[in-house]
Design a protein around this nucleic acid. Structure first.
Lengths: 199, 199, 199, 199
DNA sequence: TATGAATGAGGGTTCATTCAT
DNA sequence: CATGAATGAACCCTCATTCAT
């Protein structure tokens, strides 16, 4: 029944109907109320499932370099992040659900932030801090980490827009490596520029 | 009836009810069908209205620098962009509607892209091209322009998320100037890094 | 505004909308309520108008023979009746409205019966009585008159059905004369058969 | 829920409300949409049901004479037809629905004609042909068959009109036998008259 | 545990009518 | 007289939920 997430992702919580969900899963409509008590219960469960899978995915794809110069380590981690995000065997609905929660947070948003996003955000922050030096203003570190991640996310969430804007260009999974190179280079450049200007 | 956009932005097209819309506007429910024929007609009209306002806002805030070094001109334009986006008297629902269209495009999305976003995208591209040099690969120019704009957008659209992540930090309109400084510095750094690596 | 009858005839009283009516007549919707007070008021007026026109039409097409043998006179009158009914310049909606009233009588039905149908029915009855002889049972006379008229009406009201049943046959206005010949012959034959059996 | 046909027959498809239907049947309004998907779905089903019942009714009332002279056989069949139509335990709404379809055909009308009416029409035609002789013009046969059946139908569908016209006379089920005698005599007379004139 | 039937709340839409201009 | 705007009632339909089997 986890494929019900597709519907939630595609339509949003309110617009998604358990009718469509159960039809895709070839189960009875009433079973939703039996197993999850509520439509909301189903949503919560699907969300938990998505977070779990997301965590596993990061664990399954280990950090490929914990050594090297700080900038190289940040680059490597961002490359991994992009790789996971654009992974072809990753259901695209999971990212969609996360995005929806950011636009209109429900009560579940808290757990998403705390359990999933903050830890990763802090990992990126530490890598950024290594690049910028330990005595850098915390604000700048946070800004950089957020900028780096949101940039990665933007290329994923705005796929449809980019497709429409540049029909002959491709900034998606098909040439994910080249995209990763562009993004990481850009981010590192941005981070270093902040380092220089902070002096 | 333009304040109906708030509901569309907050709830999404399907989940928004004309009941709530008309209640906020203190008008009869049936008036929607009279004036706009449809719920969809109302949505279209609200969207047009948002685009119109957005255009006016950019015209009202004149470009503050058409001279100076290329990087300075790009910085100035991004600063203006951020200033317009975080403008306190700007209804926050407009950005929200645009964002929703990017996530799940309707038939309206085309006009949004062509009339509103592509022209501005091209303006940024030309500024980026000035920084990178005219013989830069088109792909890199496009990437940089999109990255710059999406970075600005990210700090606006993820306000709630940032608030939750860093309750004591502020990356929003209240200190928009400082944010603009960080973003523009980051972007210029990123663009320059691409320039260097492309050689 | 008399062309509004078309809508009433085509859709029925309830299903007809004054919107469609006023659109066809190129007038304002509110004018209906101004001139006729009600939708029902409009209907009544249109009905009156139809009855008036129907009367005029019969007067305009005078009885072509008041002499000859009784059977010939009945035949002549039925031929005239069919001729009027299938008259090409006669709006088909008038018959339709009358038929609708027969299926679901409203308060206007009474006046239709008394002012319009009963007089004509009595005219046919008298012609039938001439054929059958004056001492014929009243019941038989009435039956024959009704049968004759309803037979004429059936070929008009069931046009669509006949078209579907016999796509290559035509029992309508285009060869109204031949149809009249068939019907009148049939009716006279029927009436005479009743005369014989009554003995 | 088959008693919903009463409402459709009385009011017509558009004017009939599922509210009234469900109230009569003492069921929830939404159940219509659950079982028949649509108001139209309900209509279709009710119509099918009516046709089914109509067929059964004819089977239940066996042909009472397959021998005798041709005119006697036609008479017998018409008598049976009238008997079925005026059968006291026959819901009057079924004829009404058929009649409505003839006046304003919907997409259902086709199946009504093909499955129900054409076969019976052809039966009557063959009986008429026996009376008239096999080398009679097809057109005359068709005309006679239609005239015979529409005459039977007219006395049923115009009951209310006849009641108003002759309040003290009765041409309905109560003395159905006498009516049948009148009609069949009339029809045979008409058919024979056509036979004579065709020579 | 699973399923088909039933239900009530709520949503969008239509439409006749009224009102102010 | 004419008209555009506004309104409330009513209708069909969807959908989450409950219930009996």
């Amino acid at each position: 029944m986890e494929a019900a997430g597709e519907v939630f992702a595609q339509r949003g919580y309110k617009a998604a109907t358990i009718h469509e969900i159960c039809q895709r899963a070839n189960v009875n409509i009433a079973s939703v109320n039996y197993h999850f008590r509520d439509k909301e219960g189903l949503y919560r469960e699907v969300f938990r499932y998505a977070m779990e899978q997301s965590r596993e995915r990061y664990l399954a794809c280990p950090i490929d370099a914990s050594e090297g110069r700080p900038a190289q380590r940040l680059k490597a981690e961002l490359r991994r992040h992009l790789h996971v995000m654009f992974s072809p065997n990753r259901a695209p609905w999971q990212a969609m659900m996360f995005f929806r929660e950011m636009l209109e947070p429900t009560e579940i948003f808290d757990s998403l932030v705390e359990e999933q996003m903050r830890p990763y955000q802090q990992l990126i922050e530490s890598l950024v801090r290594d690049v910028l030096g330990s005595q850098t203003e915390e604000r700048v570190v946070r800004f950089s980490a957020f900028a780096a991640l949101s940039l990665c996310g933007a290329f994923h969430s705005s796929r449809k827009y980019i497709e429409k804007l540049y029909p002959d260009e491709r900034f998606d999974g098909e040439n994910s490596d080249e995209l990763a190179e562009l993004i990481t280079t850009f981010v590192i450049g941005g981070v270093r520029a902040l380092k220089s200007s902070a002096k």
